[in-house]
């Protein structure tokens, strides 16, 4: 199968994850097309469609994410190819992704030619040499003008690469208690993240969202405070080596995922733990 990795410039970690996916899919080494900028997918449609047809590409793999989905979906529509998104597993003839808010995994038989976006955090980065990258530039898109690009306020990969995470749900009452959780995270040497409702309510930036529409974590320690354990969030924390849940509801589904659990008010417990960690000289 003739496979092409399509990534955005200066994101080698995505290329290595796509390479791992490509190796699961086919024995032949893939091609690698590197898009020079991720700001407007439409500019790449004609160059990518032309290359895909000229090279006889059978599988075009993009990183799942905002820019990757936008480019992949529009390219699939232009080429009339079937597309699968947010793949979490690949074999030579099947692909899987989450469905029903990550309550189920949907498996699809792979068609002969397709476009796909691949969940980067689901594939361990491939070792060895990457294929030579061919730079692909965009065509001008006069219907729109990029006025400015504001950088993220913080390291965008901080949460994804964190070894320790404090994950807050709605029951943590972040608006009122953010300083407590921020201190707890600092004392634990952890990154602070949250469930979708905490991001929607503006209590945490969206870059701190944990779960199927945010970051899928693989930390050594995750302390989940005031989260009920809805599956969309659970998918983001369930691969933690040590998952500890704190919720005042002993029947919260979160506890079914946890190695250890505490039935307590999240903020009250966080304050007590801060006191203890300070006493122990942490931080």
């Amino acid at each position: 199968m003739k496979t092409v990795l399509v990534t955005f410039a200066a994101r080698p970690e995505e290329a290595r994850a796509l390479l791992a996916a490509a190796r699961a899919l086919a024995d032949e080494p893939p091609l690698w097309w590197e898009l020079t900028d991720d700001s407007c997918a439409e500019g790449y449609l004609a160059p990518l469609a032309g290359r895909a047809q000229a090279q006889g590409a059978e599988a075009l793999l993009f990183p799942a994410g905002k820019a990757g989905l936008s480019a992949a979906a529009q390219l699939a529509a232009r080429l009339g190819l079937p597309i699968l998104t947010e793949l979490t597993a690949l074999t030579k003839d099947r692909a899987a992704r989450a469905a029903y808010n990550a309550n189920l995994t949907a498996w699809f038989a792979l068609p002969a030619r397709f476009v796909a976006t691949v969940t980067v955090s689901a594939f361990a980065p491939a070792g060895g040499e990457l294929p030579a990258a061919e730079a692909v530039g965009p065509q001008a898109e006069p219907w729109n003008e990029l006025v400015e690009r504001l950088p993220p306020a913080e390291d965008p990969l901080a949460l994804a690469g964190a070894e320790r995470v404090v994950a807050c749900g709605k029951g943590a009452a972040l608006k009122k208690n953010l300083p407590v959780y921020a201190e707890l995270a600092q004392l634990l040497g952890a990154e602070l993240g949250g469930t979708r409702p905490t991001a929607i309510d503006g209590d945490l930036p969206h870059s701190r969202l944990i779960g199927i529409s945010g970051t899928l974590l693989h930390p050594k320690l995750c302390l989940a405070l005031g989260a009920s354990g809805a599956q969309a969030f659970a998918a983001g924390v369930q691969k933690s080596k040590l998952l500890i849940g704190v919720n005042n509801d002993p029947t919260a589904p979160l506890f079914r995922l946890c190695h250890a659990g505490v039935v307590a008010d999240a903020a009250e417990f966080a304050r007590a733990l801060c006191d203890l960690l300070r006493e122990q000289g942490n931080g």
Partner: peptide
């Protein structure tokens, strides 16, 4: 493209509940 299978892959652990009369 319709799925050929929908599988349940839930993680279930035997959570050890931490006891204590107070948060401390």
């Amino acid at each position: 493209l319709a799925p050929c299978a929908l599988e349940r892959e839930s993680v279930e652990r035997s959570c050890e509940m931490i006891e204590g009369g107070t948060a401390e």
